[in-house]
Amino acid sequence: MSLGASWQRREVGGQTQLFLLGDWRIAHLDGLLKRFDWSRESQGCAVIALNELEAGDSATLALLMEWTQVQASRGMTLQIRGISQPLQELVALYRLQDMLHIDHD
């Protein structure tokens, strides 16, 4: 597992998606979030793809909740795709199913 974390905007099936890459656990988020500007990076994105996320924790879910609320305030529904089993278990533990729009593809 790499310790780095990054993101990429990609067109998939005519839809702009934001892919989170690497390790987005709390121990690595401070430096990452200093470089990440959600308002700029999320432009036109209705999907967060976690397929390439190597690790996540409750801090990752907190970010997803915040981004979901930001997009909702813009009149958009943010879909979350490719969520790992451990993150799904945290979503269930914290009862976030109604807040996070998770696509179980």
Rank of each mutant, 00 (worst) to 15 (best):
M1E: 00
M1Q: 08
M1T: 12
S2L: 07
L3C: 07
A5T: 11
S6Y: 01
Q8D: 14
Q8N: 14
R9V: 15
R9M: 05
R10H: 09
R10P: 00
V12C: 05
V12P: 00
V12L: 09
G13D: 11
G13S: 08
Q15A: 15
Q15I: 05
T16H: 08
T16C: 08
F19C: 11
L21Y: 04
L21Q: 11
L21I: 04
G22R: 09
G22T: 12
G22Y: 13
G22F: 12
D23W: 11
D23I: 07
W24P: 03
W24R: 03
R25S: 12
R25L: 07
R25G: 07
I26K: 05
A27R: 11
D30W: 05
D30Y: 09
G31H: 06
G31C: 10
L32H: 02
L32D: 02
L32Q: 06
L33I: 04
R35K: 13
D37L: 10
W38K: 00
R40A: 15
R40I: 11
S42R: 03
S42M: 15
S42Y: 06
Q43F: 03
G44H: 09
G44V: 06
A46E: 11
V47P: 00
I48Y: 00
I48C: 01
I48S: 03
L50K: 06
L50C: 07
E52R: 13
E52F: 01
L53I: 05
E54C: 07
E54N: 11
A55G: 14
D57L: 13
S58K: 03
A59T: 05
A59I: 02
T60R: 01
T60Y: 13
L61C: 08
M65L: 15
W67G: 11
W67M: 12
Q69L: 12
V70Y: 01
V70S: 02
A72M: 09
S73M: 07
S73V: 02
R74E: 15
M76R: 15
M76L: 14
L78P: 02
I80D: 00
I80M: 02
I80W: 00
R81L: 11
R81H: 12
L87N: 00
L87M: 11
Q88K: 09
V91Y: 01
V91Q: 00
L93N: 03
Y94T: 05
Y94L: 10
R95K: 14
R95N: 15
L96V: 11
L96I: 07
Q97R: 14
M99V: 12
M99D: 04
L100G: 09
L100P: 04
H101P: 03
D103E: 12
